[in-house]
């Protein structure tokens, strides 16, 4: 394995720190690589769902990356994709079962999307591109970086959508907190109405698009020619 770092390198060397920070901005899995979009659009109606989804993806990504990295010298090349799939699938099933037991309401709302973490391109992408050729330490950091890169986009999108779509914020363990006074709403004789469009998937795409726009206007290097 020529790509491996020397054993003397510390876990938080400059190179390894980059593994953590890059996916948060310049190689963000959602906004730059445009992976994992499906779940990002589907479960960002409420902050609470987005938090649980992010944690689930983070767990699966870390688990998958570390396990694959530990096994990287044992996995037969010819069935490596299947091996990766089996590892990811088992981790996802564990997440699903735990959610069902301890967070039944959220598990119901996330429904199929927990199962679909298996096909989330971010996870397979990181396993194939990074964990297979690197040691567990860097793989662990890479997983955290990419997981957090996925998570912050989800959180931002869900906060925007929930505030404008439902006039509320749902915090884990506190339920939905409505911060606008009821008398403001048109139905109660006020002037304000929630924007139902924000609840629908297209607005998630628009919100992600706006984040991509801001990101590219700040960093010209991200803009492709043509």
């Amino acid at each position: 394995m020529s790509t491996e770092s020397t054993p003397k390198e510390s876990l938080f060397s400059k190179k390894n720190k980059k593994l953590l920070s890059d996916p948060l901005s310049d190689s963000n899995p959602i906004t730059i690589q445009v992976l994992g979009i499906c779940s990002a659009l589907a479960i960002t109606v409420q902050l609470q769902q987005a938090v649980i989804m992010s944690l689930s993806v983070l767990f699966v990504l870390i688990g998958g990356n570390v396990i694959v990295s530990l096994l990287r010298n044992l996995i037969p090349d010819r069935i490596r994709i299947i091996v990766q799939l089996v590892i990811v699938a088992s981790l996802v099933i564990i997440v699903d079962q735990v959610l069902r037991a301890f967070q039944p309401d959220i598990s119901e709302k996330l429904s199929v999307f927990v199962g679909l973490i298996i096909t989330n391109c971010i996870i397979m992408g990181r396993l194939e591109a990074f964990a297979l050729g690197n040691k567990p330490g860097p793989s662990f950091l890479d997983a955290i970086g990419n997981g957090m890169g996925y998570a912050w986009i989800l959180l931002v999108v869900s906060i925007v959508r929930e505030i404008f779509g439902s006039g509320a914020i749902s915090l884990p363990g506190m339920g939905q907190v409505k911060f606008l006074p009821e008398s403001w709403f048109i139905s109660n004789g006020g002037f304000y109405e929630n924007n139902n469009l924000m609840i629908l998937p297209p607005m998630a795409l628009v919100t992600v698009g706006i984040i991509i726009w801001i990101q590219r206007s700040r960093n010209k290097a991200l803009i492709e020619e043509n």
Binding site: I93, I94, Q97, V98, R100, F102, P104
Partner: peptide, 9 residues
């Protein structure tokens, strides 16, 4: 995993 969480589910 499935067996140990079954009761709770």
């Amino acid at each position: 995993t499935a067996m140990s969480l079954k009761d709770k589910q």
